[in-house]
């Protein structure tokens, strides 16, 4: 109970209720067609910004949904300048990298200890960290902001990614813990008999073995930091520090639909990295996400 699923790290289970290879039955074809149509509904909204971003403002005003006459690359350039996308991308990248660097090592270290050095003392610490997994971010927004103002780290990028990392550490500790638990003990045991200390076992053997979990963590922490809205909204006030998401969100407030093609272009740029990462690594991302689902 309350354990984290280790689905992420185990090999694929045999697909047990799926059909064995046999001729396609009519029911199967109908269901697949219906599901494909549903999937088209899911994909369709992704086409909208491209439709809008390709048009001139005038074209959009008269025929928002018509096929664009030509592709206006100018919208992307204008959007780039209007919301300083270059600055936004750099800010967001800093937040992402900071978040990765501050989340993963602490989580991997503590996850390792909770998996391999179990005692009453570490159990207590484990539950202490587990608490963080159940705290909604909203609960701590006010004191967090007050504290950042008092220590003058509000409105800085590290003031954003440090708490972001803190909120991510409990989850990734759980993931690393179940990953290290699933690793065979023989290698570490052999190294220990050969006189390797705790640290060299950890860094020479365990961390390299944990690579799959680390790749997942980097991917998902990156996506999470890239997509964040609420924390950035509260903690950043200077336009210069705005991340991509804040820039895109404030764009619509500033211009309304008057600049829709540009806005759509900005949106495409700001969504592209996560979508591209997902297209490349969707198997891993889905697995990693499922690993976070609570297990019996």
């Amino acid at each position: 109970m309350g354990e984290v699923n280790t689905m992420a790290v185990k090999p694929d289970r045999p697909r047990s209720i799926q059909g064995t290879r046999r001729r396609h039955r009519p029911a199967e074809i109908i269901v697949t067609v219906v599901l494909s149509i549903l999937a088209l509904f899911v994909i369709f909204p992704f086409v909208i910004p491209f439709l809008f971003a390709a048009k001139t403002q005038l074209e959009f005003a008269y025929h928002p949904w018509a096929w664009p006459k030509s592709f206006q690359v100018k919208n992307f350039i204008d959007a780039w300048k209007a919301v300083r996308i270059d600055k936004g991308l750099i800010n967001t990248l800093i937040v992402c990298i900071g978040s990765i660097v501050c989340t993963i090592p602490p989580a991997a270290l503590s996850g390792y200890v909770f998996a391999r050095y179990r005692s009453r003392f570490t159990e207590i610490l484990f539950y202490l960290i587990l608490i963080g997994y159940f705290i909604p971010v909203q609960m701590v927004l006010v004191p967090l902001y007050k504290m950042e103002v008092a220590t003058h780290i509000n409105d800085t990028l590290y003031g954003l990614f440090l708490p972001m990392a803190a909120f991510g550490i409990p989850f990734w500790t759980l993931i690393y813990r179940s990953f290290f638990k699933s690793l065979p003990n023989e290698l570490a045991e052999a190294a220990r008999i050969d006189g390797a200390g705790h640290w060299s076992v950890l860094f020479r053997i365990m961390f390299p073995l944990a690579q799959p979990a680390t790749v997942l963590a980097v991917l998902l922490v990156f996506i999470g930091a890239w997509n964040d809205y609420l924390l950035s909204l509260v903690l950043l006030t200077d336009q210069n520090n705005f991340t991509m998401q804040l820039r895109v969100a404030s764009f619509l407030n500033a211009y309304g639909t008057d600049r829709m093609p540009r806005y759509a272009a900005a949106a495409i740029i700001s969504a592209a990295p996560t979508v591209i990462l997902y297209i490349i690594g969707h198997r891993g991302i889905i697995k990693g996400t499922l690993a976070g689902a609570i297990k019996e």
Binding site: L109, V140, A165
Partner: peptide, 17 residues
């Protein structure tokens, strides 16, 4: 090993709670 995680949580989670 547990210290970094605890420090992060203490500052940005336990104290704010």
């Amino acid at each position: 090993c547990v210290l970094p995680a605890l420090v992060f949580l203490a500052i940005f989670l336990y104290y704010p709670i």
